[in-house]
Amino acid sequence: MGSLKPADGHASETGFFVTQVDWVVNWGRKNSLWPMPLGLSCCGIELMAMIGPKFDIARFGAEAARFSPRQCDLMVVAGTLTWKMAEAARLIYDQMPDPKWVIAMGVCSSSGGMYDSYSVVQGVDMILPVDLYVPGCPPRPDAVIDAILKLQKKIEREKPFQLLLDGDVVGEYDSGTKRFLRAPNHGVPTTGSHEVLPPTKPGRGRS
């Protein structure tokens, strides 16, 4: 295992053993992302193009698109999310096993985009935590591939073993703007407390 190098800064904070475990776990996770293509509208077609022959997402280990949320760890919200669809989207997110990441593809899912209307969710972070936002209407497949590479870098920085020792993992939720501000930093799956839900303690939670 001579070629395994821990990420910078890890060794000084925790023990060498823990960092190596983190590194191996992250290495496995980032190179086998299984996307859950939540193709809602126009961006769904570009998502298909990304999986298709020219752009070929298989080069980055993320070609195993599964339509069952139970088999996925990367949710790509591609397109306009409406309030009617929001229930289903949240349900799909809850059904995905931990650890899971979310890419908001296109301006509609990032912020509501051009649809400032009565039926559209103004950004998918109103209902679930998002790791990466990709602008564009729709973004080119290259942009989404770039997002997946950035997500891989983000996964590299996570500390799953340390989080197992520390305990709770939640995303940050702002009740004023009714938005998720920060996606969770994933630990090793445990039962119970790691479920990503907005905290409801007084002062922090939703009213």
Partner: peptide, 14 residues
Amino acid sequence: HQGIEPDRLYREWD
């Protein structure tokens, strides 16, 4: 155009 409480049904479900 922006609607009246567009998220009400979702919040209730949530």
